Computed example of a mutant assay.
Amino acid sequence: MALLESVKLYAHDNDFLGRLELSVGSELMQHVEYHKNSYGPINSWVKPSPEDIAILAAPEDHLSDQLYNKTIGIFKLPDEIIAVCKNIDFDSVLFRKDLQERFSKEPTVFQAFEKQIGEYIEQLKIEQDSDHIIHAMPILANPHITMTRKFISGVEDYLFCGLHVDGDSGDSLEECASADNRISINLTSEPRVLLFINISVDDILNKYAHTLHLDTLLAGNRDALVRAFFEANPHYPVVKIIIKPYELYVAPTDNLIHDGSIGGRKQKDVTLVALGRFSPISPAWAKAN
């Protein structure tokens, strides 16, 4: 099935050919550690065609902060922050207590990291006086192709959920398009992966409902939308894009079917995640460098 026009990619190095692969479709996750009706990519990948790249890469007229809810931006951390990350040695972190112990031994190093990362996140904000929160600093290892666990209604177990739409703005579909977006920063020297369907939730509902055989899906919650999408479109490609060491992505994760993936990493996946309204295109520091 061919890719549809919707969510676009912007990368600081424009190296899309080296970053992208497409799955041959999706499948139900059968492992006991997954919630029922969870979906992930079929683990068979192909390189995108020139036509695929043209659909995914953001053209000049798309690079606007007003399209933050339909753009994924990938940037490299400034050199001075990379140096602090290497000094802290996030590569060797196994558990949260490791960071706590290091902070107690070298508080000035962590204070420098906190100050620099805070200033950096401020520069990414679309509106400088808007609020943002540091949402999490996950330290994860995962044998599966997706990595997010969560609780779902009516199920007590904290299980993997597969490709999903985040619900930080609420559960209803109407809130997806106006939700904040998310920064996820790779603090280590190994790459990680972002998996996603390149159609925003609002475009699934309002633009492509007939094309995707979802005409009757006009209400419901985010989990129901994801399940219906994959049931009706098992051959739609999942996009896999590599997030290199010390890079971050800015993505509309409340308006996007997605998940992270650790792939073949040897180290724990250590990231810093922030929620707010961030620019998915070149911020001021990138233009200056």
Rank of each mutant, 00 (worst) to 15 (best):
L4G: 14
E5A: 12
Y10E: 01
H12V: 14
F16S: 14
F16P: 08
G18W: 02
R19A: 04
L20G: 06
L22W: 04
L28Q: 00
Q30L: 09
H31Y: 00
Y34L: 00
H35Y: 12
Y39E: 01
K47F: 03
I53G: 11
A54S: 07
I55P: 04
I55F: 00
A57Q: 13
A58R: 13
P59E: 07
E60H: 09
L63P: 09
Q66S: 15
Q66D: 12
K70A: 12
I72Y: 03
I74H: 03
K76I: 06
K76D: 07
D79L: 06
D79Y: 06
E80R: 09
I82S: 00
N87S: 06
I88S: 01
D89M: 00
F90K: 00
V93N: 05
R96P: 11
L99H: 12
Q100V: 15
E101V: 14
E101Q: 13
R102Y: 00
R102Q: 07
F103L: 09
F103H: 04
S104Q: 14
K105P: 05
K105L: 11
K105N: 09
T108N: 15
F110Y: 10
A112Q: 14
F113Q: 02
E114P: 05
K115T: 11
Q116W: 04
Y120H: 12
Y120Q: 07
L124H: 10
L124E: 05
K125E: 14
Q128D: 09
D129E: 06
I133H: 13
I133S: 13
I134A: 08
A141G: 12
P143V: 09
S153P: 04
V155P: 06
Y158M: 03
G162D: 02
L163C: 04
D166W: 05
D171M: 10
L173T: 01
A177K: 12
S178E: 15
S178F: 13
I183K: 01
I183L: 04
I183G: 05
I185C: 07
L187Q: 07
T188M: 12
S189N: 11
L194R: 04
N198F: 02
D203R: 08
I204M: 10
Y208T: 05
A209V: 15
H210P: 10
L214A: 13
D215Q: 08
T216H: 14
T216M: 15
A228C: 11
A232N: 15
H235P: 10
P237L: 08
V239E: 07
V239S: 14
K240C: 06
I242A: 10
I243V: 06
I243R: 01
Y246N: 12
Y246H: 14
L248A: 02
L248E: 02
L248Y: 05
V250Q: 10
A251S: 11
P252N: 10
L256I: 08
L256G: 00
I257G: 02
H258R: 02
D259W: 01
D259H: 05
S261D: 12
G263N: 07
G263T: 09
G263Y: 04
R265K: 08
Q267S: 11
L272N: 03
V273Y: 06
G276Y: 07
R277I: 15
A284C: 14
A284T: 05
W285V: 12
